[in-house]
Every structure is written in C-alpha cells, then in structure tokens.
Amino acid sequence: MTLSLQRPAPGERSAPPGGGSPRRPGWRSRLYRWEGRSAPYVYVAPFFLLFLAFGLFPLIYTAWISLHQYRLGSRMKWVGLDNFIWLFTNEKFYNALFKTFTIGILSTVPQLLLALGLAHLLNYKLRGRTFFRVAMIMPYATSVAAATLVFAQLFGRDAGAINWLLGLVGIDAVDWRNGDWTAQIAISVIIIWRWTGYNALIYLAGMQSISKDLYEAATLDGATKWQQFRHVTLPGLRPTILFTVVVSTIGASQVFGEPLIFGGGKSDGGAVNQYQTLGLFMYQQGWTYNALGRAAAVAWVMFVLIIGLVWLNTRLARRRQGKLGQS
C-alpha cells in the first residue's frame, strides 16, 4: 500500500503567508527552500566537526604515526610496516592479548550474571527500592583511581582485609599482587564492583518495559518464579542483554586504569606481566619506552580487534534471533 500525501519534502517549508505569489517563486522563497535543505546539516555540524577534530583526525594520524619510528621531541622516521612486524612477532603482545581476554572473561561474565540477578530482585516491590537502586550505581560514580587504590590495600598480602578474612577461616595469606591468576582475579573484582550496578540498572529498565500481562498469564498457567524468569524475563531482555554484552566487551578490551594503578603506576603489569592488558602494553610502549610509533601500532590493532569483536557479537545475536523467529 502506498500512501500519497501532499506534503513538503522533509525540512522544506511551505511558502510563508503573503510572501509573494506562488506562481512566481522569488529569491526569497528560494532562500527559504535552501535554508530548509541545509538547516539539518548545520544542526548536526557541531557534532561532526568535533568528531573530525577529536575522533577522525587522531584516528588517521595514529595510523600515520604507526608507520614511523617516533620518539617524543625527535623527528619521525618512516619505517613502513616495521612496527606491525615487531608487534606480531613479540610474545609480550600475545601475552597482553591473552591477559586482556582472561581478565575480560573473569570480569564480564560474573558482572553481567550478578547484574541480572540484582535487577531481578530489585524488580520486585521492595521496601526502600530507590535506596537500593541509588546505592547500586554509587560504585559507577566512583573514580577508577580511588576504587583501585582502596582495593589494592584490601588485597594487600601482609595487612589486607581480604587476607585477614581468609585467615579467619584458616586459609593462608595469599600474595594477590604477585600471583598470576590471583592478580587477575583481584583486578576483575574491581571491575565487577564498579560496573555491576550500572548493568543492573540497564537490565532493570529493560525488565520494566516487559508487559505485566505476560507475568500474570504465566502465573495463571502455574509457572514458578524461576520459570517466569527464564521464559518471560530473559527473552524480553534479549536486546538489552545484547547491548550490555557489546558495551562490556568494548570496555573489557580497553581495560587500563585498574591494572595500571593496581600495579602501583607501573606499566609492566606484574613481574611476569601477569596482568598487563593491551591498554597497559600500549601505554608502556608510548610512555615508558617512548616508542610512540609502536604504541600507535598497538592502538590500531586494538581498534581493529574491537571492531571485529563488536561485529562478531552482533552477528551471533542476529543469528540467534533469526533462529528464534523460525522456531
């Protein structure tokens, strides 16, 4: 069915009343028409100009730098793809890639599961609901630096609160910082603590947009709370979950502040680089070793990786949705 409406093109204005005869389009009406066409572009221009200056230009300039040997304060020297060859033959790069992946899994999976559970609980009519919701978002409002500093103390070997608690149940002091997995777990805990509330709020918003009728119908059919959660809440939340997964994946691939500050400001990420993420690796190249060309190469590889991950995420999600539609 086609709908034919007599209306001006989007953004176009009808001739102003009394603005000359319609038979003879004067300069004034042409001006109006031109304004109507160009106005939308002018309105979006500020964003795109800023994006050009602070988004696109740095992106392209970084690519340019990545083809050079560049030390701050000295001249750039063209090296072609040497930086990338160096990167792809460097075991520290693969280590960082792997650590980014493990810390990403260790932090994202529990974080989203916890958030889902919390959101489900907060979706019930609780006393002091607003308080709980605000409390949940508080960690998100805390600075990474402050949170990490406190956690670094909590995870201290000799006088940390967590080892003290473990000591109460008879577990020997753990050297969180120096251990391989322990350091990764400690960093993941910081990330989980900061981001769970944020994701829970997003889930909560998603849950509240699910129609109450569905729950009532499910109750009438004798579905338990768990069954309601599985068969009503989860399917209804699918787009929301996809969103949080994409955002968390991007976040996880860029983890930087937590391992940097947890490591006392050093970019090594521990004695055996056990918590050196890609972000930290890039920082180390650029600001510890002054190798800006190499740092730029890492940045570009990270960029491509993230784009790839997001693409994969959406592909997977679309496939599942497609299957769901068929069934």
């Binding site: 600075s143 990474v144 630096a145 402050a146 990490t148 500093l149 502040g257 940097l260 500050i261 006392g264 400001g265 050093k266 600001w287 510890t288």
Partner: peptide
Amino acid sequence: MQTPRSNPVALAALALSSA
C-alpha cells in the same frame, strides 16, 4: 620506569589524569 622518588599512593590520581 621505576624511580626512587615515586610514591605509589599519590601516583594514583596522576596515573589516570596523565593522559
């Protein structure tokens, strides 16, 4: 780089803001 005069506790805020 490790340097004798760095204080890890006070590095914190700087670390992030350095960018």
